[in-house]
Every structure is written in C-alpha cells, then in structure tokens.
Design a protein around this nucleic acid. Structure first.
Lengths: 147, 147
DNA sequence: TGGTATTACATGGGATTTTATGGGTGTCAA
DNA sequence: TTGACACCCATAAAATCCCATGTAATACCA
C-alpha cells in the first residue's frame, strides 16, 4: 500500500485552511477517499492524520504495549477527538480551532509522512523534536563517537 | 540483483536537476522502476538513494499505534525525509532545495555506488571523507608500517 | 589501421501543466 | 441576520515535460 513519506511546509490561512501536500492527497485519493481523518496526538503537540480507513477498527489497532484496559481508553480518547475533514476542490482541509490550538499552529504547518499515517506540526516545535530524536539515535548507534 | 558501483561526477543545474548516471539508471529501470528514492543521510553530509523498493519495509518498522510505544526512531527519521523523485525523459531527477542544502551541493554532485544503494556528495567533501577512510584502513591493516 | 559515421549520454533552455494560496459568493442554521 | 462553511474562481510560483545541442564513446568501413 502506498505510504505517507516526506516533509512539506504549507500555509494556514485566515480561515484555518491548509493545502494537504499533493503526494499525501495522492495516497488518500488512491484509496478512493475524499477526506482526511485527523485527531490531536495524545502525547505530543501535533495532529495525526490518515485516511479514515485507518480508524475503522480502532480498538484492534491499538498497540499491545498498553494494558488491556488502557487500550480501550486510548481508543475512546481518540474516537472522541477524531474528525473527518473533507478535501475541498483545491485539495485543502479546514482545521477546527481546537486542533489549531492543540498543535500551537500559527501561520504555517509542517506535514511529515510516517508510513501509514502523517503528522502536522508547528514548524519550530517539529525542528526541536526531530533534533532530539536524531541525537537519541546517534547516541544509540555510535556510542563511541566514531565517524 | 544488479548493484550500484562506480563513481560519477555530474552537474547540478540552476533548476536543481542532475542526471542520474546511466549505469545507475540501468539498475533502477532493470527493476521496472521509473523513480529514485532519496533521503539525506542521518550521519553524514550526503544523500542516500536506491530504488524505492529498498524502503518499502520501513513502513512496517514504525509502530502502528497511537502512542509512544516501542518505536523505531531511525525509521521515523528516514520516512520523514524520504522523497520519491521521478526520472524525467532524459534520466534526470530534481533535487529539493533542502537536500541540496543538507549535502552542501553547489554546481556538481559525485555519485558513488555502494552496492544496494548509492550516495551523492559534494565532490570536495567526498574527497576528504575517502582520504580519511583510506587512512583508517591502512592503519588497521598495516600497524607496523610495512609497505 | 586510420578515419568516419553513428549512437548514447549529459546538459541547456523554453513551454506547459500542477500546485499552493488568496479572496469572493451563496446557502443553511442558529 | 449573522456567522460558519462549502463552493467557485483567479493568480503566482513551482514542478514537469519537451526539444535542441555539444560531446564522448562506440561501431563501421575502406
């Protein structure tokens, strides 16, 4: 199945509209969908999106790393905040105000592909997160500082 | 399977286009592909490329959960920066500006084959890295200075 | 074997199409 | 009747395609 990958920075206009990057649209529309399913991340200051199909069996898709009861609660929390946002004629979606607030978005949003899903971040916040992630990976793979 | 090998220096034009060396194209097209998958190296100032098939399992390495479970951060970092660049009619690809910046490319790029993948470097940077690599190898194999 | 024709490749530039973005208008519901 | 929202159109910028050219490598022939 085609996946979401790559990084794209798009503008959020005064109406809360953002263009979904064309490659991401291609993935969505390649599945015959005309909308994006989006919800705020439970643990990070970003939004997580995919085709709506990803959320259809939400409970069975929750990772095993949570206890059995925690799993259901995660599903409930996501379900409660999940929105189906239709693509307009130009390939844009309209972000609800709460989503803009939760991700601290102002006038720009960075989309990053993560395989089966994608995320939307305030550009500065993403840069910090990515930098920290790279440092962890570097430390783990090169403990002795080899070049 | 045919591998990428050899060194080729090609020009990066004002539009950010580079010709993919014909032997590399032959490898890609021999697999029935019409595009190159490319991403900045996580640890070096260069770009790493291959056929897109090399990255297809990346998707499955990212936990398909909704929280910070055991995740493969390497896969996340690469997926975020991975791009699929189609070959034009003349066998060229267009490098995104961020890629040019990350590899410090100006008007030329050196392609070096690495078997399953290839790398693209700013020629001067590659020369320095190769020299250092040769010195390490020499030191390791001839610790007593034999000719 | 020397010289010439032919092909493949890399590169340059222009034309065309996609994409992202800004703004307007009508409709429905509170 | 006033927003909120879907829909429509306009435009600039960027990505893509197409054709032309120089040059190096190869094949061909006398």
């Amino acid at each position: 199945m085609k996946a979401f990958f790559g990084t794209f920075v798009n503008k959020v206009d005064a109406k809360g509209r953002v263009s979904v990057p064309a490659p991401f649209r291609a993935v969505i529309q390649g599945r015959g969908l005309t909308s994006v399913a989006l919800h705020p991340s439970l643990f990070e200051s970003c939004l997580e999106g995919a085709g709506f199909d990803r959320f259809e069996n939400l409970e069975s898709q929750i990772a095993d790393s949570f206890g059995p009861s925690t799993r259901d609660e995660v599903a409930e929390l996501i379900m409660a905040e999940l929105r189906e946002l239709p693509l307009d004629g130009e390939g844009r979606i309209v972000l609800p105000d709460e989503f803009i607030a939760k991700a601290n978005l102002t006038d720009q949003a960075t989309f990053i592909g993560q395989g089966r899903r994608f995320q939307m971040w305030e550009p500065g916040a993403l840069a910090a997160v990515m930098k920290a992630k790279l440092q962890r990976v570097t430390a783990a793979l090169k403990p002795n500082g080899n070049a």
